[in-house]
Amino acid sequence: MSSRPAAKVTISTIAAEAGVSTATVSKVLNGRADVSTATRDRIRQIMARHHYQPRRARRRGGVVDLVLNELDSLWSIEIIRGAEEALRDEGVSMMLSAVHGSTAGTNAWLDQLAARRSDGAILVVSDLTPRQRTKLGALGIPFVLVDPVGNVDPTVPTIGATNWAGAIAATEHLIGLGHRRIAHLAGPRQLLCSRARADGFHAAMEAAGLPVPDGAVRYGEFNDPSGRTEMAALLDEADRVGRPSPTAVFAASDLQAFGAYTALRERGLRVPDDVSVVGFDDVPVTRWSDPALTTVRQPLQEMAAMAANTLLRLVDGEDVNLPRVELATHLVVRGSTAAPVVATGAG
């Protein structure tokens, strides 16, 4: 007989054996009515066979905190929607906090989280310091990170997206249309997602044998004013050195792409007739812009929902062996990209 201990049975174990999602198992454990009788009976039989006893000692007030850098951006709204829906399905309330990148704000959300004895936290913040991690640990509050700045503790569950692959898809789309002079409006240098998108742009250009001239990559912020400023700077730089302007631009966010729209129109240039533009994120307004924006869809709501479900598993005492999950991005082609009017060389 083997002396090895039996493998720990978790909600994931039950879900896999029953052929259902972990959310369905959780609904049965919580006595929810929106599960068929046959499925409910099958799950309960499997739990009885494994002598499964759910651990609920850490569930306190049925409240989870969602902490973001800001609450009013289109990006944040999609994250809020995804997390709220997933938590609502589990009968858990959600509290919102904004950090705004300030030390005072950071202290405030930590203090508030401790005061209301939150069950856990979904953190969508630009950075998490070692001191903050230590305080969360001292409070006994589990947390999940969404799209963090850089490398994090491998024991902390992290949900992100395939930024590098998405950037390659965007750039290859423009190359496939015949563009050879392509620029990139990048996000903040310190953000991991910005660097991954810039790296993907460079990788696609290099694979196609296309040069990236000095000044053709402009780092800024994920907002409309930055896109407008950096797009204007791209055009000014091309004029200053006597180089042809780019015929296509890949922006690291949809808002930067809309800023590029403005800068191009101010110069009398049309999208996509004169310059094609691709964004990143696929926030809802992209389909209503003029022209509708070709962009890389980042599954923001799905990322938030996975973070919420992962957090609830941690709250329930499960081991979550997901150090980092990256959900797939994909290109959505709309009206802002087209073949260049005049064939251009690589220069």
Rank of each mutant, 00 (worst) to 15 (best):
Glu90Arg: 13
Leu136Ala: 01
Ala165Phe: 07
Met94Arg: 05
Val124Gly: 11
Met94Ile: 11
Leu185Cys: 10
Arg181Ala: 10
Asp89Leu: 13
Arg81Glu: 08
Val149Ser: 12
Ala121Glu: 03
Glu90Cys: 08
Thr134Asp: 11
Phe143His: 06
Asn163Pro: 05
Ser118Phe: 02
Leu96Phe: 04
Arg195Asp: 13
Ile182Gly: 02
Arg189Glu: 12
Met95Leu: 13
Ala115Arg: 12
Ile122Cys: 04
Val152Lys: 01
Arg88Gln: 14
Thr134Pro: 01
Leu192Arg: 15
Glu85Gln: 15
Pro188Asn: 07
His179Lys: 03
Arg195Glu: 15
Ala86Phe: 03
Leu87Ala: 09
Arg189Asp: 13
Gly120Val: 01
Val152Trp: 03
Arg180Tyr: 07
Asp119Val: 03
Ala104Val: 13
Leu177Trp: 05
Val144His: 00
Thr155Tyr: 09
Gly178Ile: 02
Ala104His: 11
Ala169Glu: 13
Arg180Glu: 11
His184Val: 09
Leu174Trp: 06
Leu128Cys: 06
Asp127Asn: 12
Ala204Asn: 04
Ile80His: 04
Ser102Thr: 15
Trp164Gln: 15
Ala114Asn: 02
Ile80Glu: 08
Leu123Trp: 02
Thr155Ser: 14
Ala186Gly: 12
Arg197Met: 08
Thr162Pro: 02
Arg81Met: 06
Thr106Cys: 09
Arg133Pro: 01
Ala138Glu: 13
Ile80Asp: 07
Arg131Gln: 14
Glu90Gln: 15
Thr162Phe: 07
Gly137His: 07
Ala186Thr: 11
Thr158Leu: 03
Ile168Gly: 06
Arg189Lys: 11
Ser118Val: 00
Arg195Lys: 14
Phe143Cys: 05
Leu145Ala: 02
Leu145Cys: 06
Arg116Leu: 10
Thr103Asp: 14
Asp147Leu: 05
Gly150Glu: 15
Gly178Gln: 05
Ala186Pro: 11
His202Asn: 14
Arg116Lys: 13
Val146Lys: 05
Ala186Ile: 10
Arg189Phe: 11
Val92Asn: 04
Ile141Lys: 00
Glu90Ser: 14
Gln112Phe: 04
Ser118Met: 03
Thr162His: 09
Leu192Cys: 08
Val92Leu: 10
Gly176Pro: 05
Gly200Pro: 03
Val152Cys: 09
Ala138Pro: 00
Ala138Asp: 14
Arg81Ser: 12
Ala170Asp: 06
His184Thr: 10
His100Arg: 15
His184Gly: 10
Arg81Phe: 08
Glu84Lys: 08
Asp147Ile: 05
Glu84Pro: 03
Val92Ile: 15
Ala169Arg: 08
Ala161Val: 15
Ser126Asp: 14
Ala83Cys: 06
Ala165Gly: 11
Leu139Pro: 00
Ser194Gln: 06
Gly166Ile: 04
Leu177Ser: 07
Phe143Pro: 01
Met205Val: 08
Arg195Gln: 15
Pro130Ser: 08
Asn107Arg: 11
Gly120Trp: 00
Ala104Cys: 08
Ala167Asn: 09
